[in-house]
Design a protein around this nucleic acid. Sequence first.
DNA 1: TGCATTTCTTTCACGAGTAAAACACCTGTT
DNA 2: AACAGGTGTTTTACTCGTGAAAGAAATGCA
Lengths: 180, 180
Amino acid sequence: MTAPSGRQAGASRGDDTVSAVVRQWRAVHPDLDTGPMEIIGRINRCAALLQQAEDAPLRRAGLSRPEFDLLGALRRTGHELTPGELARETFSSGAAVTKRLKQLTERGLVERRGDTRDRRVAHLRLTDAGRELVDGILPEQLTYETAVLAVLDPKGQGELAGLLGELLGRLEGTLGAIRV
Amino acid sequence: MTAPSGRQAGASRGDDTVSAVVRQWRAVHPDLDTGPMEIIGRINRCAALLQQAEDAPLRRAGLSRPEFDLLGALRRTGHELTPGELARETFSSGAAVTKRLKQLTERGLVERRGDTRDRRVAHLRLTDAGRELVDGILPEQLTYETAVLAVLDPKGQGELAGLLGELLGRLEGTLGAIRV
DNA sequence: TGCATTTCTTTCACGAGTAAAACACCTGTT
DNA sequence: AACAGGTGTTTTACTCGTGAAAGAAATGCA
């Protein structure tokens, strides 16, 4: 029927799912300040959409995003990490890290070495195969992400990155200190 | 990727976890454009932090966020919804909705009514208790979210909401159409 | 030294989500 | 009327993450 040629011309404001939801809430509770929803709702929804989208290149390599995050932490720090450090670095629980490491070790992407001084701790490093996998995926991943974000012009991207950085920096500083 | 001008008043740039990660990547792979990470990484991290934070008021009411999303969908639309509609409205799978509805029904927050014409479909509505629960939680929730977001000044909040709305609106339009 | 305490990691039991199959029911066609 | 195929929902089997407890080893202190 209609040829969808001229893309993203007037697709600007007020037509995302979150603003529709906010409109519904305002109709039911006109007294409430729905401002926060327009930020938090959109961050959550964007995160969900982007994760689903960016999982595609990883899935081709047989990795989930949490698995890639582990390998990536080892690659980008450039040295061995203990399970505890990996948990902190990837913001996940120790138990989850243990499970993922088990699988990644079995797949030969990661190697484990015991500490000589303290026999409780382990040190993990990428195998050659692991490093090659990460280095192979990362450019694809970034290319894909660049393509997805291209729906925003470079100026908008810069502003968005700046604002998110400001928000995140302050949240990481203050969260846990807020009580309501 | 030029440095974003404009904003940044006080405790501004370069001090969130994402920028530290990006610095590490650039040291290892100086040739790659890490721009997308500064947006996608931050969106993901903000989503994780905010969700953890905003779960607190809900948890006090004995609800998880996905459960509250279901109740909220029923409340804000103002009419009965079928399981399928609820799944679409909350962006979750039908199976997940079935499970949550089972629990919420057992807790007396939601009621089920069979369709008279089509005996496959069910219609769900809030009970009085369910509506009162939602209406009691929502103001708390919004107050909490307002407090959390107050780390950004109102101008920044407005800009952020606008940029996210633009991104989300276009992602929802284009995602699925992007192949790399 | 011996014992309590702390730290690092793994194990366990469980809850929650998913995809795919199963069910139950409707609808259009012949 | 009968049935093939489609649709709405639930069930099943499985994966993955979580918090709490267990396990194992170091450390501090009497």
